[in-house]
């Protein structure tokens, strides 16, 4: 899509906004609709849009595949790790009261943030990894055939 000037300029403007919105959805998820799943998908959409317009090589320079693959596993580790930490603090698995023993609802806030962050990281990683896997294949149809 080298010749689509408008697409390229608009994409440059949009990608930043999309990523900002993804962070908003991620960390404001306790107060408004949103959370890790949606934020992960939106974050992935930002990179996919960049990849579609500027090409796979450009986006992989920003967000290399090995980082993506690590993120896929890291999110699940963060989630399960939250549970293990609360276990070691003497509470049940995934009992967020552990993080602020004198103020259980604050503990819940911290726990929910950590867990949602884990979900967001995994979902971003998986979606971008799937896109990379699909886009790395040589296409059978040329652009004109569409």
């Amino acid at each position: 899509m080298r010749h689509h000037l408008i697409l390229r300029v608009v994409t440059k403007l949009l990608v930043g906004c999309i990523i900002l919105f993804a962070f908003y959805v991620q960390f404001h998820g306790d107060f408004s609709p949103g959370g890790g799943f949606q934020a992960g998908v939106i974050m992935a959409v930002a990179f996919i849009l960049y990849g579609i317009v500027f090409g796979l090589r450009k986006v992989q320079a920003v967000f290399p595949p090995w980082v993506v693959h690590k993120m896929v596993a890291l999110g699940v580790l963060i989630y399960a790790g939250t549970g293990v930490v609360s276990l070691f603090l003497g509470y049940g698995f995934l009992d967020y009261g552990a993080f602020a023993p004198h103020h259980p609802s604050h503990g819940q806030h911290y726990g929910i943030l950590a867990v949602e962050f884990g979900v967001g990281v995994t979902v971003t990683g998986v979606m971008v990894a799937i896109y990379y896997a699909f886009a790395a294949r040589p296409a059978r149809l040329s652009d004109e055939e569409w």
């Binding site: 998820g29 306790d30 107060f31 408004s32 609709p33 949103g34 959370g35 259980p104 609802s105 819940q108 806030h109 929910i112 949602e116």
Partner: peptide, 11 residues
């Protein structure tokens, strides 16, 4: 009471 988060779905 327990979680004090406005969005029940997230809670």
């Amino acid at each position: 009471e327990e979680i004090d988060v406005p969005n029940v779905v997230t809670a």
